[in-house]
C-alpha cells in the first residue's frame, strides 16, 4: 500500500500535465490557453517537488508560471485590442 500511493500521485501529476498541455495547445480561446499554461507551470513545480528539486520548484513557480504568465497575459491583452489586418500577399 505504501508503494502504491506515491505511484498514484506521480501518475496523477504526469497525466494532468499531459492533459493540460494538450488543452493549452488545442483550445480556441487564447486567453484560456494562457491561463492553462500558467496552471501547467504550477503543476511543473509540483513535479519538481516530487523529483526532490526544490530549487526548480521555486524557480518554476516564480519564473515559469509567474513571470512568463504575466508576460503572456499582457500580450493577450494587447492582441485583444482590435486591429484591422493589413493586406497580405
Amino acid at each position: 500500500m505504501n508503494d502504491i500511493l506515491p505511484w498514484l500521485y506521480d501518475s496523477l501529476i504526469a497525466l494532468t500535465l499531459l492533459w493540460i498541455a494538450w488543452q493549452t495547445l488545442s483550445t480556441r480561446d487564447l486567453f484560456k490557453a494562457v491561463l492553462l499554461f500558467i496552471v501547467f507551470g504550477l503543476l511543473m513545480a509540483l513535479a519538481w517537488v516530487r523529483l526532490q528539486a526544490p530549487d526548480l520548484a521555486l524557480a518554476e513557480a516564480a519564473i515559469g508560471a509567474g513571470l512568463t504568465g504575466a508576460l503572456l497575459l499582457d500580450a493577450v491583452g494587447h492582441l485583444r485590442v482590435p486591429r484591422r489586418p493589413g493586406p497580405r500577399k
Partner: peptide, 15 residues
C-alpha cells in the same frame, strides 16, 4: 500558425 500558440508550444517543449 498563431505566434502566441507557437510560443506556448515552445515553452511546453522546453519543460
Amino acid at each position: 500558425a498563431h505566434l502566441l500558440r507557437r510560443i506556448l508550444a515552445f515553452n511546453i517543449m522546453g519543460s
